[in-house]
Design a protein around this nucleic acid. Structure first.
Lengths: 202, 202
DNA sequence: CACGGAACGGTCAACCCTGACTGCCAGCGG
DNA sequence: CCGCTGGCAGTCAGGGTTGACCGTTCCGTG
């Protein structure tokens, strides 16, 4: 039977709408993520959207939560993807840098940037974002540790290097909002790799 | 006399409007920088605004040029501000890090982030931004060189360190879109300083 | 089995933004 | 001195967005 319980349908609706909201955020930006755009992309009626998310603000704040989860599962996927055995240490560092760099061009990153940016001039959104990002940050750190592996993670300089890499990558990635070159060929990659290799050598 | 020539009045109008546009960009974001908001902040009539900038797009693209100039003169000011003699090298590095970090919380930075972000989903804006940012980047690099001074600039690792610092700072600064702690106390500052001191010691 | 309420579908008024348009005034060239 | 054009004021229609507000269909429980 196709009969779904009421709560199931409700959960489906929310997921459908939230996915669409994140997609709108990425493709059209925060301003373009109107309730009409979201409902059109989700293929739901106005009533259905407004029933679950009474205001645009609630919708987009909820989208941030949803986004956070998406982000982490994706990050975990990346982690297992690199899990495939690489024995050489320098080689491993290089691959990790490339892999982490690539995550900055997944949808969640740009959606997050849209939200960060919008939050700057939207107190309510900012307040909703703050605790969420704090939790997300430690989760991301955990995933990063798994990507790097225990050997690298144990290095005394690892925390500093990891932090420098993450923040620098974010700073560079921002420029790709208007640059349309392929990110994989960014000259910074070689810079990060050499820095990581140098600072993390045992 | 208070009589202004026609071209003078025109230039005044443009400057007035562009300043207001940048201010709107910073305080209300790209989406909030409507032509009505700009004209209200500038204290000009609708006709006056639309006479000089026939469309919102042209206005905001022009604002980016204006912004770029503002950015550079401000950066130059900072450069001369630090010009005051600091003899000790390590001390000098620390102060430079703090000074550069502080520039990330001037209006031009946030206005630039608004534009970068908006450009991601706006092809016309992106195309207008690209060459401008390229020019701006080399200009900023020149100002940075003047801030660091010839001795540091001559260090073989300087280009790498400078690039890492700039990008990392930008990445960290983004988080202050929703964090409201004072940036000067950010723990990354100490990290940057120690890295710069270590990598730039002769 | 009835019935209260959750989960919708669809419409509507109010609001805001943009750019076009008309009209006016004052420098400035002839 | 005069007409003309640049610079500007104020209004307006058109389009888009939001959230309130109806009605309707069933699920789930007493």
């Amino acid at each position: 039977m196709e009969t779904r319980s009421r709560s199931e349908r409700s959960a489906d609706s929310r997921a459908l709408i939230l996915d669409a909201a994140v997609a709108c955020l990425v493709s059209d930006g925060y301003a373009g993520a109107s309730t009409l755009a979201v409902q059109a992309r989700a293929g739901v009626s106005r009533g259905r959207l407004l029933h679950h998310f009474p205001s645009r603000e609630e919708l987009l704040v909820a989208a941030t939560s949803h986004l956070a989860e998406t982000m982490l599962t994706e990050a975990a996927d990346h982690a297992v993807a690199v899990g495939a055995g690489i024995t050489d240490e320098a080689e491993r560092v290089d691959r990790c840098v490339e892999l982490i760099w690539a995550t900055f061009f997944e949808p969640p990153f740009w959606a997050a940037m849209e939200l960060w940016n919008a939050a700057r001039t939207d107190e309510a959104l900012r307040a909703a974002l703050r605790p969420q990002e704090r939790r997300l940050r430690v989760a991301i750190r955990g995933v990063a540790d798994r990507i790097w592996g225990p050997q690298v993670t144990a290095h005394p300089r690892y925390p500093v290097v990891s932090e420098l890499l993450f923040t620098s990558m974010r700073g560079v990635a921002m420029a790709y909002a208007f640059e349309d070159r392929p990110p994989a060929t960014d000259p910074h990659v070689a810079l990060w790799q050499s820095m990581a290799r140098e600072l993390l050598e045992d």
